[in-house]
Amino acid sequence: MPGGLVALLDDISVIARVAAASIDDVGVAVGKAGTKAAGVVIDDAAVTPSYVTGLHPSRELPIIAKIAQGSLKNKLLFLLPGALLLSWLLPQAITYILILGGSYLAFEGAEKVLEKLGGEKHGKTLEDAIDDPAKFEQERIAGAIRTDLILSAEIMAIALNEVATQTDSFWTRAIALAAVGIAITAIVYGAVALIVKMDDVGLHMTERASTSAQAIGRALLKAMPILLTALSLVGTIAMLWVGGGIVLHGLHELGLHAPSDLAHGAQHAVEEATGAFAGVAGWFTYAAISALVGLALGMLIVFVMHKVLRMGHGVGKEAEAH
Rank of each mutant, 00 (worst) to 15 (best):
His306Tyr: 08
Val40Pro: 02
Ala106Pro: 10
Val270Arg: 01
Leu228Val: 11
Ala65Leu: 02
Asp148Asn: 14
Lys197Gln: 14
Thr95Gln: 09
Leu117Lys: 15
Asp25His: 13
Ala319Lys: 09
Thr48Phe: 00
Ala291Phe: 02
Gly119Trp: 03
Glu60Ser: 00
Gly143Arg: 08
Met299Ile: 07
Ser212Gly: 04
Glu207Lys: 13
Ile141Glu: 08
Arg173Asp: 05
Ala287Lys: 09
Ala273Thr: 09
Leu126Ile: 15
Pro81Glu: 09
Ala238Leu: 10
Leu300Phe: 14
Leu9Tyr: 12
Ala46Ile: 02
Ile130Glu: 12
Ile226Arg: 14
Ala213Gly: 04
Leu256His: 07
Ala46Pro: 03
Leu79Met: 10
Ser210Asp: 13
Gly101Leu: 04
Ala288Pro: 06
Val41Pro: 00
Ala296Gln: 05
Ile99Cys: 09
Thr35Cys: 06
Ile130Pro: 13
His56Ser: 14
Ala176Tyr: 10
Ser169Ile: 13
Ala159Ile: 07
Ala129Met: 12
Ala186Met: 10
Leu194Tyr: 11
Pro133Asn: 13
Val30Phe: 12
Val315Ile: 11
Lys73Ala: 09
Gly54Met: 10
Leu80Lys: 06
Pro49Asp: 01
Leu85Arg: 09
Thr147Gln: 03
Ala287Val: 05
Leu79Lys: 07
Ala223Arg: 08
Lys124Phe: 03
Ala296His: 04
Leu256Asp: 04
Ile97Arg: 02
Asp168Thr: 15
Met311Cys: 02
Asp128Gln: 09
His313Phe: 05
Val302Arg: 08
Gly298Ile: 01
Thr35Tyr: 11
Ile23Gly: 10
Val308Cys: 02
Lys66Pro: 01
His264Arg: 08
His306Phe: 03
Val113Asp: 13
Ile184Ser: 14
Ile12Ser: 07
Gly217Glu: 04
Leu231Gly: 08
Ala269Cys: 01
Lys197Ile: 03
Leu55Ser: 14
Ala129Pro: 04
Thr285Pro: 06
Ser13Gln: 15
Ile195Trp: 04
Ala7Gly: 05
Val308Gly: 02
Lys32Arg: 13
Thr206Cys: 00
Ile182Arg: 04
Leu114Pro: 14
Arg208Phe: 05
Pro62Ser: 11
Val188Glu: 03
Gln138Met: 05
Pro49Asn: 02
